[in-house]
Amino acid sequence: MKRRLSIGLAVALLVAVVCVVIFNRGDEPASADLATVRGVIGSEKLAFFQDQRVIDAFAKHGLRVEVDSAGSRQIATTVDLGKYDFAFPSSSPAAQRIQRDRKVTAGYTPFQSPMAVATFEPIVALLTANGVVHQGAGNYQVLDVAKYLELTRAGTRWDQLPGTPAFPARRNVLVTTTDPRESNSAAMYLSAISFVANGNNVVSTPDAEAKVLPEIGKLFLDQGYTQNSTEGPFEDYLAAGMGKTPMALIYESQYVGRAVKGDGAIRPDMRLLYLAPTVYSKHTLVPLAANGDKVGQLLSTDPELGKLAATFGFRTSDPRQFEQVVADAKLTVPNDLVDIVEPPSFETLERLLDAVSKKY
């Protein structure tokens, strides 16, 4: 009797194991069946690619995506792309440089994010009173770059602005950025600032470069120490508050993604301003191998991956995904931005950034 029970139990266990294996094989690919795809990406997308939901979504298509992060400028110039299946910088000029150098015509822009300024209600009120902030075309507020440059040219301090009891700091009115020698967000800021400084024209000639360089360089150097990733000033903004970082240049996706996360980091007195004009950071994937191309296609067309990208604050190729995410989070952000300019060519950006770097 005991022997029959033991045999029966063993058979039952064996059947259960076989059922589990069959179920797993039918539900999603086994780990050994996944094709490993390697990419190098801008650091602001690292959390997206490391999210388990994103990992599982790629696995459904037979892919295991492994990524390293680097600055967009580094990806385009110094990173050894020979060991990667795709490159995914955060700007279209960097992607165009990679395409040209690698003789690749294909490219995907599955999501993008406008540059914005994270700040606080007292700062918004103070700058509004001084004509620097005004209402945008929709239910959002903008930082007028031309008015802002008037303050920086004069070396205006916060405590010199009418209404200074709101923020009586003995520091120049400056947006905190990242290091222009390393960070894409600083290059995007340079793009918007140089456009206005060049009489509302994209910088495209050596004469225009020479014209805007002194003003651009001062905006970076007067900040003192700057960090090499937008995560740095954004975390300072969240943790240290208005005294440390009254205005931080960030990607809209950072603010929206953190608000959607719902961890309380975005407090009621925090505000998001859009630069006028602003620049879109267009996250452009350049395929370097067949599976890299598949990653680009999936990010551009797969609804599940699109919805996940929207939860990280990215504007996807389907605007409804972003709109639904911000509506669910009860965020007031524009569905469309009107005052947008294109960045200079990669070569022009490189010359401007190199010239600023030499001033450090």
Rank of each mutant, 00 (worst) to 15 (best):
M1W: 02
R3I: 15
S6F: 12
I7F: 14
I7V: 13
I7W: 15
I7D: 04
G8P: 12
L13V: 14
L14H: 14
V21L: 11
I22T: 14
N24Y: 13
E28R: 11
S31L: 08
L34T: 13
L34I: 10
V37P: 01
R38I: 09
G39E: 00
G42Q: 00
S43Q: 10
L46G: 01
F49C: 11
Q50Y: 09
D51S: 02
Q52Y: 15
Q52H: 07
D56Q: 06
K60P: 00
K60I: 00
V67S: 02
D68S: 05
S69H: 06
G71R: 06
S72K: 09
T78R: 08
D80T: 06
G82I: 02
K83F: 03
K83V: 05
D85Q: 06
S92H: 15
P93L: 00
A94C: 07
I98F: 04
I98E: 01
R100Q: 14
R100N: 11
R102V: 06
A106I: 07
A118Y: 13
A118T: 03
E121Q: 14
E121K: 09
I123S: 08
V124E: 11
A125R: 15
T128Q: 04
A129K: 14
G131M: 01
G131F: 09
V133P: 01
V133M: 02
G136E: 02
G138I: 00
Y140G: 00
Y140Q: 00
V142H: 00
L143M: 04
A146E: 15
T152R: 06
Q160L: 01
P162G: 06
P165F: 09
R170T: 11
R170Y: 12
N172H: 13
V173S: 05
V173E: 05
L174D: 04
L174W: 13
T178K: 04
E182R: 15
S183R: 01
A186D: 03
A197M: 13
N198R: 14
G199R: 07
N200A: 08
V203W: 11
P206T: 03
D207W: 07
K211L: 13
L213M: 12
I216G: 01
K218V: 10
L219M: 11
G232S: 10
F234H: 08
F234E: 02
K244P: 07
M247Q: 14
M247D: 12
R258F: 07
A259D: 01
R267T: 15
L272Q: 11
L272G: 08
A276V: 05
S281P: 00
K282T: 09
K282G: 01
G292C: 05
G292K: 10
D293P: 05
K294A: 10
K294Y: 11
T301Y: 05
E304R: 13
E304H: 15
L305I: 13
K307R: 09
F314Q: 01
D318W: 07
D318P: 01
P319E: 09
E323T: 10
E323P: 07
A327N: 12
D328Q: 10
T332Y: 00
D336W: 02
L337Y: 06
L337H: 04
L337N: 07
V338N: 07
L352T: 04
V356Y: 03
